[in-house]
Amino acid sequence: MKVKSGAPMAEGDMTPMIDMTFQLIAFFMILINFNEAIIDERIQLPKSELAQPPDQPTDEPITIQLTKDNLLIFSGDVVPVAQLRGLLTNEKNFLERKKDLATGRTKKAADATIFIRADNRAKSGVVQQVIQDCMQLQFEKFALRAVQESKNEP
């Protein structure tokens, strides 16, 4: 479109649009979930009325996911349960090289918490097997993960 030179140009005020856009960006940034890497959609967690998010973050979390086909998802890889001990040994060795910043002592397997995200159709015996394998490597603390059930749900 040809604009006549010298003609006064109407200039739109951009401020409200920029304000609104920044508000939207801030909104989406706050909602973004950085834990997405450990939340796998293949796992349908069991529901529980008592499932409450933890009050404070766990010091040394290790997440093990178990699919309905009784396969593990560990660090993004799908592996059979038989391989868990090897993978956990690596985690344990890595953990034992770390030092607690507050006390200065070397960390050990008992300081870590194993989060188990098992599908609601997985076999309980396999979950127990996972716990047994962890215990053989001196892991003691476990957290069974469930999804919060709303009170209106049947």
């Binding site: 939340i39 967690l45 529980s48 008592l50 499932a51 409450q52 998010p53 933890p54 918490t113 989060f115 716990i131 215990m135 003691e140 603390k141 476990f142 957290a143 069974l144 993960r145 469930a146 999804v147 919060q148």
Partner: peptide, 9 residues
Amino acid sequence: IEGDFNIKM
């Protein structure tokens, strides 16, 4: 929202 049941073995 996910929550945990802590079990100590």
